Amino acid sequence: MMGNFTRWVGLGIATAGLVACGGGGSGGSDSGGTGQMSLAVTDAPVDSASRVVVRFTHIELQPSDGERIRIDLGEDEEVREIDLLTLQGEDSEFLFEDEEVPAGEYAWLRFHLEESEEVVDFPGSQGGIATTSFIEFMDGNEDRLIIPGGNQAGLQLSGGFSVPEDGEVSFTVDFDLRKAIVEDSRDGFHRMRRSLRLVDNDAVGAITGTVDPTLFPDDFTCEEREEGLHACPGAAVYVFEGLDREPRDLRDDDDDAVTTANVQYRHIEETGDWEYRYTAGFLEAGEYTVALTFEAGEDDPEEETPIEFVDQANAEVEAGETTEVNF
Results as ranks from 00 to 15, higher is better:
M1V: 03
G3Q: 05
N4Q: 11
W8M: 14
G10V: 05
G12M: 06
L18I: 05
L18Q: 07
G23V: 04
G23A: 15
G28M: 14
S31Q: 14
G35Y: 00
M37F: 14
S38T: 08
L39W: 07
A40V: 06
T42D: 08
P45I: 03
V46W: 00
S50G: 07
T57I: 02
T57L: 12
D65V: 15
G66E: 04
E67T: 15
I69F: 09
I71Y: 00
E75T: 15
D76W: 02
D76I: 12
R80H: 08
I82T: 06
T86W: 08
Q88H: 05
G89N: 00
G89D: 07
E90T: 12
E97Q: 11
D98R: 04
E100H: 02
E100Q: 15
G104A: 14
W108Y: 15
W108D: 01
L109F: 14
F111C: 04
E118P: 00
D121P: 07
F122S: 14
P123G: 13
G124K: 07
G128S: 05
G128L: 07
I135P: 06
I135T: 12
E136N: 03
F137C: 13
G140R: 00
L145E: 01
I146H: 05
I147H: 13
Q152S: 07
G154Q: 03
G154I: 00
G154S: 08
L155S: 04
G160P: 05
G160D: 04
V163A: 05
E165K: 15
D166C: 10
E168M: 09
F171A: 14
T172E: 02
D174R: 11
F175L: 12
F175C: 08
K179H: 13
A180L: 07
R186Q: 14
D187G: 14
G188S: 13
R193Q: 13
S195I: 12
S195Y: 10
V199K: 10
N201I: 08
G205E: 03
G205C: 13
T221I: 09
E224M: 12
C232H: 09
P233L: 03
A235T: 01
F240L: 12
E241F: 00
L243W: 01
D244F: 03
D244R: 08
D249T: 15
D254T: 14
D255W: 01
A257H: 04
N262Y: 01
V263Y: 08
H267K: 10
H267W: 07
T271P: 03
D273T: 13
Y276D: 07
A280R: 00
A280H: 05
G281L: 12
E287M: 06
A296Y: 06
A296G: 10
G297D: 09
E298C: 05
D300R: 10
N314C: 02
E318A: 15
G320Y: 06
T322H: 06
T322Y: 03
V325R: 00
